[in-house]
Amino acid sequence: MLVQLSHPHRQVEIKGPKRTKELLRELNLVMEAHLVIRGDELVTEDEILADADQIEIRPVISGGT
């Protein structure tokens, strides 16, 4: 599956099927600081992502005051 990441903007190819939780762990990312979006829908951590899915992992932490 094609996974889009931010900060910096980049794309990586990851082998599916895989649970959201495992995908984040593999990329060393914390669930609490990210959203996982398939197409344009949010998915939960137990969702199984397929090889054909378009995934965006969006950071939610901002540093403003």
Binding site: L35, I37, L42, V60, G63, T65
Partner: peptide, 29 residues
């Protein structure tokens, strides 16, 4: 923060995901 970002996605609010470039490495983060 995560709940608010999720609310924005669910309600199709088009916001800027990129951070202000000055925020990099801030203590808050």
């Amino acid at each position: 923060e995560r709940e608010i970002a999720a609310y924005a996605v669910v309600n199709r609010i088009d916001y800027i995901v990129e951070e202000c470039p000055m925020a990099k490495g801030s203590k808050m983060i």
